[in-house]
């Protein structure tokens, strides 16, 4: 799943770099070459990458929680297995991304602490609650749909380990969106209660899904640099438009209504016009004031704290065994 671009209004700090090395680096990236961990890279590139990859990883991990909320209540055995496998996949994707970020010299524990302290961000979308089973459908369909839109181009991102992680992630996630849409399809042709549930989920998840693409381009000052560095391959607004254009017909096909009275096909542009995202709400959720932000961080903190003795025990056990082996030799 995708991380919201939260570079916001903060301009990346400028560090003086050797102009020759910088020029060579820029040329390599412009030439669509891959940058590998030991290659020279500008400090700002390293920092931007660690931030983006760790945010992405955190989003996967926190993203396990809203859907995990329904594993124990999945309505049948097939759905239970699918949902469990999907949420497990998110964990795996977090793992791949942390590992990719670790190649730049930041440990997973450091990144975890940054998450728990509130210093690091994760996608705003996961700070909304999953209230009914239809939310599981809506998340797969909309949230994973939005994620895919952003992740597919990232398979060609300039940083090798990130690109390789994204290739694996995209391959694995190919079923995520489909299973979500399938849930919605079933609900939409189900009982009146199920239809109501599906429409309600779309109503609640639509706007937060549009927020996943990040602030509007004119308020995303680092976009140009990130695009030049191939850390990002499309602008926020381009992706948002693409998402709306693809998703609206999918909603119509199953008889659901997108909750936007300004939504209208624009023949001239060959695209949908749509209403303004509530950027004030977005900013608040980025600040950590999302509806269930406290619950999400509390759950991660609890897992981290409750697991401390386990991690420590395993480490001490291995140390004992290693020492015993040395003593025996």
């Amino acid at each position: 799943m995708y991380t919201t671009d939260m570079s916001g209004n903060k301009k990346a700090e400028v560090v003086a770099e050797d102009p020759e090395e910088l020029a060579a680096f820029e040329a390599r990236v412009a030439n669509d070459e891959f940058i590998e961990p030991k290659d020279w890279m500008p400090e700002a590139y390293r920092k931007t990458l660690v931030r983006q990859m760790s945010q992405h990883a955190h989003s996967e991990i926190v993203g396990m929680l809203p859907e995990g909320n329904w594993i124990s209540r999945a309505p049948n055995l097939r759905r239970k297995a699918i949902l469990l496998a999907k949420v497990q996949d998110e964990g795996g994707h977090g793992l791949y991304l942390y590992a990719a970020a670790e190649t730049l010299g930041t440990s997973r524990d450091e990144m975890t602490e940054a998450l728990l302290s509130g210093k690091a961000k994760y996608s705003t979308i996961f700070n909304y609650p999953t209230l009914t089973w239809a939310d599981i459908g809506a998340i797969g369909w909309l949230v994973d749909g939005a994620a895919i839109m952003n992740q597919v181009p990232l398979q060609r991102t300039s940083y090798g380990p990130y690109a390789r992680a994204m290739v694996r992630i995209c391959k694995e996630e190919s079923f995520h969106q489909r299973q979500g849409y399938e849930i919605m399809m079933h609900l939409a042709v189900g009982t009146p209660e199920q239809k109501r549930m599906a429409q309600d989920a779309l109503n609640r998840w639509w706007w937060p899904s549009l927020m996943m693409f990040g602030p509007p381009d004119e308020k995303s000052p680092n976009t140009a640099q990130s695009m030049r560095w191939r850390i990002k391959r499309d602008t926020n607004d381009e992706l948002r438009q693409k998402f709306v254009d693809i998703t609206v017909p999918q909603a119509e096909a199953i008889g659901l209504t997108v909750p936007d009275d300004k939504l209208k096909w624009n023949e001239e542009r060959g695209a949908y016009d749509f209403g303004e995202v509530d950027w004030e709400e977005f900013a608040a959720v980025v600040r950590g004031e999302g509806p269930v932000a406290k619950e999400r961080l509390q759950a991660r903190q609890k897992a981290w704290d409750d697991g401390a003795w386990v991690r420590e025990a395993a480490r001490v056990h291995a140390e004992k065994r290693a020492n015993a082996k040395v003593a025996a030799e």
């Binding site: 594993i71 239970k80 497990q88 409750d306 386990v310």
Partner: peptide, 20 residues
């Protein structure tokens, strides 16, 4: 499956989900 998302380490989370 109640462990999913709450295990002591990420890798352990995956192991428990596989068993589940």
């Amino acid at each position: 499956s109640e462990w999913c998302g709450h295990a002591p380490a990420l890798e352990v989370d995956l192991s428990l989900a596989n068993i589940a």
